[in-house]
Every structure is written in structure tokens, then in C-alpha cells.
């Protein structure tokens, strides 16, 4: 096992997440894809941390921060989505284009 496998995995996860964010119309799915991207970052952080010489725990610590913030973010985003659903009757983001010219 070398570092590069972890990087490939991380990059693949990130790209899948990015693709989902860009093409999906459902707000819930976009949220899920963002989680994917965050986790790709986490994998990267931990891998670099584990392979560093001498071993430091910085990466792991930051990963825990990311997980915490992701949880908070999901809580906030789901609240928005619920409100969106109550107002529009759907979570399709095409419906939410009020902020334009």
C-alpha cells in the first residue's frame, strides 16, 4: 500500500461528489454529494498524516474538525431544504432561482 492509492481513491470520491453537485437537481442529493467531497478530503488528510515521517496527528485532528463541521452543515442545510419543501412542494433547485436579475 502506498500513498498514491489513497490519493486516487480520494480524487475519485471528490470527482464523483463534484459531478453530483453540478448535475443533480435534487437538493438532498446535492447535499449528499457535498458529503462525498468532504469525505474525500478527510481520506486525503488522514493518509498524508499516516504516511508522514515522523508521524504527526495533525491530519487526524483536522479530519475530526471536518466531520464536526459537516454535521453542523448538514443540520443547517436540511433545515433549509425542509423549509424549501414546505414552500415550494419540491426540493428541485431549478425552482429556487429567485436570486437573479
Amino acid at each position: 500500500m502506498t500513498l498514491v492509492y489513497f490519493q486516487i481513491l480520494s480524487a475519485a470520491l471528490f470527482s464523483i461528489g463534484l459531478y453530483g453537485v453540478l448535475v443533480r437537481r435534487s437538493a438532498v442529493l446535492i447535499l449528499l454529494c457535498i458529503e462525498l467531497m468532504l469525505n474525500a478530503v478527510n481520506i486525503n488528510l488522514i493518509a498524508f498524516s499516516a504516511y508522514s515521517e515522523p508521524i504527526v496527528a495533525t491530519g487526524q485532528v483536522i479530519a475530526i474538525f471536518v466531520i464536526t463541521i459537516a454535521a453542523a452543515e448538514v443540520g443547517l442545510a436540511l433545515a433549509i431544504i425542509i423549509n424549501l419543501f414546505r414552500n415550494k412542494g419540491s426540493v428541485d433547485i431549478d425552482e429556487v432561482d429567485l436570486m437573479k436579475w
Binding site: 448535475v23 433547485i93 437573479k100
Partner: peptide
């Protein structure tokens, strides 16, 4: 230029990417 502001989330996201 104001038509660039579409209001569509994925347009803004794409621009960011």
C-alpha cells in the same frame, strides 16, 4: 451582463469549479 445572473445554483457552482 445581468443575464449572467441566472439564479441557478449549478451555474454558480460550475463557475466556481
Amino acid at each position: 451582463l445581468r443575464y449572467l445572473e441566472t439564479g441557478k445554483l449549478y451555474n454558480y457552482a460550475l463557475a466556481m469549479v
